[in-house]
Computed example of a mutant assay.
Amino acid sequence: MQTTLAQYNETQSTDSFTLQNSKLLKVSLTGNTIQAKIGSMVAYQGDASFEHAGSGGMSRMLKKAVTGEGQDLMKISGTGEVFLADQAQDVHLVYIEGEKITVNGPNLLAFDADIDWDIERVQGASSMMGGGLYNTSLKGTGWVAILSDGPPVLLNVASAATYADAQAAITWSEGVTTALRTDFKMKNLIGKSSGESVQMAFQGTGWVLVQPSEGRVSAGPTNGSGGGLGNLLGG
């Protein structure tokens, strides 16, 4: 019997985080512990242990409760490989080295357990919107896996004034500062209920990754401040 299934053979790599394909992340657990979005495991081989990661302290627990930002995470350890995905969204890898990146919470799939995370408010948000907008910051050394609803665009913030919808801007690097901008002309043109009348403004040196969607990845009351320069690998 002839078959073309061989094209889907498991990807071989020495890296702890590898893209099996654009929708599926493969993580080698041997010698590694990771944190991942609860419910994202689709398969594993070997001996893997899954446990609730908790909030990592009272301060972060309170921030999650008040802001609605941050994912429910599970800690995965053991041997073998685990495969992670979320609703067939695109997966992208960022490797940070003592740096910080900022991620829209629902767009965070997994990261090395040694990377520290916190919840931060976008600069200028509280004065324009009740409660403000919040995102998840990650700092340290290791891999971070990011989700996007469709193929994103990577924008160089230093090259020109950069603006994006708050739910479409899914992650940005260290050296990038954020603010909220109200475009009254656009508001008059589109209507008061349009989200495009309020945009996130990005300045500084670094990049911002923007997905081609405001839907499916439900951001709730999210989006926060700047993050670290990484080696961005697309899916």
Rank of each mutant, 00 (worst) to 15 (best):
Q2F: 07
E10S: 15
S16W: 12
T18M: 14
K23N: 06
K26F: 12
K26V: 12
S28H: 15
T30K: 07
G31F: 08
Q35K: 13
K37A: 05
I38D: 12
M41Q: 11
V42I: 13
Y44F: 11
D47K: 05
A48N: 09
E51P: 09
A53C: 13
A53G: 14
G54R: 12
G54H: 09
S55C: 02
G56E: 08
M58N: 08
M58G: 00
S59M: 15
R60M: 11
L62W: 13
L62G: 05
K64G: 03
A65V: 06
T67A: 09
L73Y: 01
L73H: 05
I76K: 15
G80W: 12
F83Y: 15
A85D: 15
A85Q: 14
A85G: 15
D86S: 13
D86W: 15
D90C: 06
Y95F: 14
Y95Q: 12
I96Y: 02
I96Q: 00
G98H: 10
K100H: 00
L109Q: 03
L109H: 04
D118W: 01
D118A: 12
E120Y: 00
R121H: 02
V122A: 05
Q123G: 02
A125F: 05
S127V: 08
M128H: 02
G132N: 04
G132Q: 00
G132E: 02
Y134I: 04
N135R: 10
N135A: 15
K139H: 02
G140P: 01
G140D: 00
V144M: 11
L147Y: 10
P152E: 00
P152S: 09
L154K: 08
L154A: 06
N156Q: 12
V157L: 09
A158Q: 10
T162K: 04
Y163N: 04
Y163P: 03
A164C: 13
D165T: 12
Q167N: 13
Q167K: 09
Q167A: 10
T171H: 15
S173F: 01
S173I: 10
S173N: 06
T177M: 07
T178K: 05
L180V: 05
L180I: 01
L180F: 03
R181V: 03
F184W: 01
F184V: 02
K185G: 04
K185Y: 07
N188P: 07
N188L: 13
N188M: 06
L189F: 10
L189Q: 07
G191A: 15
S193I: 01
S193W: 03
S194Q: 13
E196L: 13
F202G: 02
Q203S: 11
G204N: 12
G204S: 14
G204D: 10
G206S: 04
V208P: 04
V208M: 04
L209P: 02
L209G: 00
P212H: 09
P212E: 11
E214Y: 07
S218D: 05
A219Q: 04
T222D: 13
N223S: 14
S225Y: 00
G227M: 08
L229E: 03
G230A: 08
G234N: 05
G235T: 00
G235F: 03
